[in-house]
Each structure stands twice: as structure tokens, then as C-alpha cells.
Design a binder for these strands. Structure first.
Lengths: 80, 80
DNA sequence: GCGAATTTGTACGTATGTATC
DNA sequence: AGATACATACGTACAAATTCG
């Protein structure tokens, strides 16, 4: 049970809510630079969304340059 | 019947092939700056792919800054 | 003004491939 | 060999805003 949950009724779509939550968790230091963030499957379970939605959330952070995804490995917080 | 078709056996995934084709068509002047490129539905019919694949192709060009998408309007070649 | 059609946005589930561990 | 994890693709559904007759 995550501290933050998405609000399916909010005007901001779930994938962006999850991206925002992950961004906060990273900036809060929960995931240190170089460490791996939750896998897509874990995000699916944690936030109860489809895998595509979890992927899109991660894609947002990747586009921002906040994380780096390594195929078949995972997604990592960009080293400082 | 498009001049170029995607090759489902190529190592490059369909969405990137379509993005490359559209990029060439734009640079060839088929779509002038400010003009609209084919809609997602048209790309679906032309290249015989799912809409999600067509959307991804357009997203590539958008990420490159080559085109600009206006919700409920269409996607346009970025004005010079 | 109204309603239908159009077009993009978002989300769901599922399947397969490939590389890593 | 098996489990894990990301990449890609398919189809489907509905929402929201714009356009057009």
C-alpha cells in the first residue's frame, strides 16, 4: 500500500499522477542516483493500473532525463 | 497505396519505419511547413498497422520537434 | 444552435520477442 | 532451464474538443 494513490477522478491522467509520485519519491531520496526504481510490474501492482499506463509514467521521467532505462535490466535514477 | 511500405521483417520496428517514411515525405516537401500530415486513422489505413503504432510513429517526430500536434485538430509540420 | 463526424488523448488487456540474471 | 524485465504490437473502448453540415 503506497503512501500516495492515484485519483482516477482527477483531471490529471493516471500516468501523469504516477510520474509525479515517482518524481517526488526520487527527489525525496527514496531512490538514490544510480539505484533502480520499481519495475513496471511492481508499478502495476502498487498503483493498480495497466502495464501500459505504468510504462507511460516511466516514459515521462525518461523524457525528462530523470531516469535511464536499460532494456532487460530496469530503470535507474540518473547518476548525478 | 503508399510508395513506401513497412517491412515487418526488418530489425527496425514498424513505428520507427513509419516515422522514417514520414520524415522523408516531410523533407521531400510533400508536406509543407504549417500543413497537416496524415491523421492517425489515415496512417492506420496506409501502412496497415494498429492505431497505437501509428501514434508512436508520430510521437517520434513530435519528440524531434519536426511536427506539432494540436488536440482535436491534427499534427502539423512545424513552421519554419 | 444542434448534432454528427472527425481527431487526438487516455486506458484497458493480451501476446510475442529478446536480453539478462 | 527458468524467471525476470523491457520493447513492440495488436485490438478495443471511451472521453474531449473541434469541425462541419
Amino acid at each position: 500500500m503506497p503512501d500516495e494513490r492515484i485519483d482516477p477522478y482527477a483531471p490529471v491522467p493516471p500516468y501523469r499522477q504516477i510520474a509525479a509520485i515517482l518524481r517526488r519519491r526520487i527527489q525525496a531520496g527514496e531512490f538514490a542516483p544510480g539505484s533502480r526504481i520499481p519495475t513496471e510490474s511492481e508499478l502495476v501492482e502498487t498503483y493498480e493500473v495497466a502495464r501500459t499506463t505504468a510504462r507511460r509514467a516511466v516514459a515521462v521521467l525518461r523524457d525528462e532525463g530523470l531516469v535511464i532505462t536499460v532494456p532487460q535490466r530496469g530503470t535507474y535514477v540518473r547518476p548525478v
